[in-house]
Design a protein around this nucleic acid. Structure first.
Lengths: 196, 196
DNA sequence: GTCTATACCTTGATAGAC
DNA sequence: GTCTATCAAGGTATAGAC
């Protein structure tokens, strides 16, 4: 982990390159030679910085998730009303897609498979944690009367989670809508539906 | 393609086994030895039935898509009102997840990447076709007044498409809700939102 | 921090016997 | 329709020079 004095260490540069490739082509589809080529070095040189290809994706995912969940925790602990918290959680997620699209994409594409291995067990744990965040917010919403009480909480949780994160498949920072505009529309549809 | 007289040819069995593995582990992560092991034969024997691993996934995806789009075409051509058509398209999609979960999963996970290669160009074409189906239905809905007219059609299309297909990640036929129940809830949220 | 050189393994695929 | 046997290519990773 680099100090503040080296905002872009060589190590971080290489991780950024690897993240882009993992996101675009998939972890398994990306070879260490691909990463080295993109960085302008030879594949063997990568091993001066990292133990293995696996440890690269490990560091990419764990670093990202730590930052993301710190934000969720902050929202959960706040004393706003349920609807505001739910909206904030949605917006924080779209912001993550905007600022860390590769990390989100890797997580979306690879977590299910990687989570089966011991080394990546924390991915499954984070998944459980995320579920608790959303379910807590939804139940609070139903209890305080701002959400419909005929909702199936589990299905609603999945609906929101999927709706939010899957946007990483098409959203491209700086092209078309801003992440705020996208979040606005999504929140609106989610809360009020599309029918007249 | 097997005749009706051989509902489960050896070839079809092998394709079904491959589809399950491709869906669970990813195309690249699945080796021909994995497929052969699961079928109780040796990897070389697979090549009596198929040219290559690629041709297996090719046949799995193209067969599935042909059947799915035939259903969309039927809906588009019907003379029901826009809201009914939209609902039917959503329900047909959930039914596909129920009856062909592996094929849907493979398409969701691999199409973006595979679509770049000539052989799988048809995947990109089907994607365009699917977009036309949904956008047509949404625009018809707005025009006939059953859908809100302040919707961003493109974002709404993506919202619906993603919301529907991503369910393949957690939906398991025969466990928990039926696909009809899931479709009911999704249609309800989509049309009316989750707020009171 | 990178290169040269290379070891070792896994993978997709083939040819011919049974 | 499957097995035996085998290959060439491409994959991750290592050791030591620069």
């Amino acid at each position: 982990m680099s100090a503040v004095s080296t905002p872009e260490s060589r190590r971080d540069q290489l991780l950024a390159i690897a993240a882009r490739l993992f996101a675009e082509k998939g972890f398994k589809n990306t070879t260490v030679r691909d990463i080295a080529d993109a960085a302008g070095i030879l594949s063997g040189s990568l091993y001066h910085h990292f133990d293995s290809k696996e440890s690269m994706v490990d560091e990419i995912l764990s670093t990202f998730q730590e930052a993301l969940f710190a934000q969720y925790d902050e929202i959960l602990a706040s004393d706003e009303d349920a609807r505001t918290k739910l909206e904030r959680a949605v917006r924080v997620s779209f912001e993550a897609i905007d600022q860390h699209p590769f990390e989100v994409a890797i997580y979306q594409n690879e977590a299910d498979y990687l989570g089966k291995f011991d080394r990546f067990r924390y991915l499954a744990d984070r998944n459980t944690q995320s579920r608790q965040v959303w379910v807590t917010l939804i139940e609070e919403g139903v209890r305080t009367g701002v959400l419909r009480n005929d909702l199936d909480v589990t299905l609603t949780y999945r609906f929101i989670r999927d709706t939010v994160w899957v946007a990483v498949r098409w959203y491209r920072p700086g092209r078309g809508h801003t992440h705020t505009e996208v979040a606005d529309q999504y929140v609106r549809i989610l809360l009020d539906g599309i029918s007249t």
